[in-house]
Design a protein around this nucleic acid. Structure first.
Ligand SMILES: [Mn+2]
Ligand SMILES: [Mn+2]
Ligand SMILES: [Zn+2]
Ligand SMILES: [Zn+2]
Lengths: 158, 158
DNA sequence: GTCTAGTTTAGTTATCGTTCTTATTTAGGA
DNA sequence: TCCTAAATAAGAACGATAACTAAACTAGAC
């Protein structure tokens, strides 16, 4: 999953705006680290970002990658996800969206739904607090795993 | 939030059934660790469970707590939640339910909604895989934090 | 172009949740 | 009761992340 160039440019423009607005310097490293996350339509971990950026900026340090990713998180330019046993994964898609996670292979896939975006606390729970954002995670079996399961079952049955 | 004794007993009975069914030994430690999670209506982390169990079983080791909690997870007797930067938190409520998380103070509160339980992949995303379970996390400001915010604002305004 | 505060690097060290190692104990079947 | 595979306790080890240092670099203000 590669992010279309047009969208990538939009995101890079937003990075520059947010850095300016916050009075934070626009360094080559910050640009390239963000480009790496924002250009992959995936949910890379810090280590993956590091390896990717290193191809273009061989001197980059892992320390800078971490510092920058947490900075981007503070600025709201990336989000995080990932089950808590695993390493943190970053997500440059800041549009409201949701995730499907395959419980067999761990594959994580984005999907969009305005209906889900708008979910608030249901009637009976109104006094807990005021909703700002809803995130839906659907756990299931991905199409690929379902296919190999069927194949496996056939092999066993015959 | 304390789990009523009747429900706790039901959960402990289920533990024994599941351990038997899986051919796993019923140790004192496993019983007490599960009792700790299942008896708190909360979402304790491993460390909290450890401290609680230690009052009754002073020789318990943190390692055993972790091993047991992951075992319970595999058996479907507990779930996990928590943002991936923080320590994992465990949840012995295996009924389908959802969470409200206060972005100010971190307070996590359960709520129930049959509508949310039944959420599946929306039309446009049907080919990703087959849904088994939906989890909704609503982020917002809890009633308590909203109250202290208002108080704070008043203090500043006058 | 100069200046400077903020940033990066490399290296080292620390932290903290979690997992491994090893010797010892125990649950539960024979 | 005896036996053994499984489980535990203690503490060392691990891996991801964070926090230093000091020296070099650089973005952006003037
Ligand atoms: Mn995503
Ligand atoms: Mn819960
Ligand atoms: Zn899969
Ligand atoms: Zn709060």
């Amino acid at each position: 999953m590669k992010v279309p160039n047009e969208e990538l440019q939009r995101r890079l423009r937003r990075l520059r705006e947010e850095l300016s607005a916050a009075g934070i310097k626009q360094t080559h490293q910050r640009l390239e680290i963000f480009r790496e996350v924002a250009g992959s339509g995936d949910h890379p971990c810090a280590e993956t970002v590091y390896r990717g950026v290193r191809r273009r900026v061989p001197s980059i340090s892992l320390d800078t990658v971490y510092r920058t990713l947490w900075l981007l998180l503070d600025l709201g330019l990336v989000g995080t996800l990932g089950r808590s046993r695993d390493r943190t994964r970053f997500d440059a898609d800041t549009r409201p969206h949701h995730h499907f996670v395959c419980s067999r292979c761990g594959m994580t896939m984005d999907f969009y739904s305005e209906e889900f975006d708008g979910l608030g606390l249901p009637g009976g729970a109104g006094e807990i607090g005021s909703a700002r954002r809803a995130r839906v995670e659907i756990e299931g079996i991905c199409a690929d795993c379902a296919r190999s399961d069927r194949k496996e079952r056939r092999r066993k049955d015959e």
